[in-house]
């Protein structure tokens, strides 16, 4: 071009799209690379150190001793308990979320569509602590739930339930059932929206075809709808599983004195000052989620995120 352009920078960028790309990607990469990955590696490195039993100081020698400590009975209990809780919460969340998502995707129209949509989205974004707090109110001895059971003259049902070992306890607010209920409540919206998104994409004609070919509604559900909703369910389960596994606030406020991974990490790095063991504990969710994400990716769940 003969005439003098006033924008040499634009020309350069237009001719060299790779340069533009580099300019775009560098700031976010630097941030995530330094702040996030840097910190993550700092943590991983700590897990290969150990704590000196006599002095209580960290010895900076590479060792797998700290990981071996994870396998001690009391620590292994924490790991298994947490994974069991995360699985129970995930499965129940899928069961409770499915009808809501299915109704919203298939039957809700117009105003009801918006109601269902916001109905799942507002709790998803509303304050986590407020949600936990509301359950503290509900499960309290003088709270709504006990009042409800008493008013309905069903207090004996509750007592019989609390007498069951493991899931019961002195009251709901100090039982595993209480912890489970709060987890289910807090993470449920994370399950509804991805399932709904995947169900929205199922063409109604496919369900009609299934019915026309003689499938009963149950069969359509089992062999047509569920497989198509599976990526959504997996996408939701990534959140419910990961969030339950790393949480240390819910079990601290509602639940028994037995700890979960999050609480162990928090205590070991804080009051106990055993950062290597805290780091080793923190590596477990990373590994579990790594495996989980790899499996989810092969099931095509990332399109639903």
């Amino acid at each position: 071009m003969a005439e003098a352009r006033r924008a040499p920078l634009s020309d350069t960028l237009w001719r060299r799209p790779r340069l533009l790309l580099a300019l775009l990607i560098t700031p976010p990469l630097l941030w995530l690379g330094i702040v996030y990955l840097g910190a993550l590696f700092a943590l991983l490195a700590q897990s290969f150190f150990s704590i000196d039993e006599f002095s209580g100081l960290i010895s900076y020698e590479l060792t797998l001793k700290t990981y071996a400590e994870l396998l001690r009975a009391s620590n292994l209990d924490i790991l298994l308990r947490t994974i069991a809780m995360a699985s129970a919460v995930t499965v129940s969340a899928a069961v409770v979320a499915f009808p809501i998502a299915y109704y919203a995707a298939r039957y809700a129209r117009g105003r009801w569509k918006a109601v269902f949509y916001l109905g799942a989205m507002l709790p998803l974004w509303s304050s986590y602590l407020v949600k936990v707090y509301s359950w503290k109110l509900i499960l309290a001895k003088e709270g709504v739930l006990n009042w409800l059971f008493e008013t309905l003259h069903l207090a004996w049902v509750l007592e019989a339930y609390l007498a069951i070992p493991v899931i019961g306890g002195n009251s709901l607010s100090v039982s595993w059932t209480g912890t489970f209920l709060v987890f289910l409540y807090v993470w449920l919206p994370f399950m509804i929206l991805p399932i709904q998104a995947s169900l929205e994409r199922v063409p109604p004609s496919m369900l009609e075809a299934s019915g026309d070919l003689g499938a009963r509604p149950g069969q359509t559900l089992r062999y047509v709808i569920l497989p198509l909703a599976l990526p959504g369910i997996i996408a939701g389960s990534i959140f419910t599983f990961s969030l339950t596994m790393g949480d240390y606030i819910v079990p601290q406020i509602v639940g028994t004195s037995a700890r979960m991974i999050g609480q162990a990490v928090y205590q070991f790095q804080g009051t106990a000052g055993n950062i290597p063991l805290a780091a080793a504990f923190a590596v477990v969710p990373i590994v579990v989620m790594g495996v989980y994400l790899t499996l989810a990716k092969s099931a095509g769940a990332f399109d639903e995120l």
Partner: peptide, 19 residues
């Protein structure tokens, strides 16, 4: 990499940053 900070439990991000 962008998804990771919310896909991993918050406690991991927290303790990583603190250390």
């Amino acid at each position: 990499l962008v998804i990771l900070p919310i896909a991993l439990p918050g406690i991991i991000t927290g303790i990583s940053l603190r250390s």
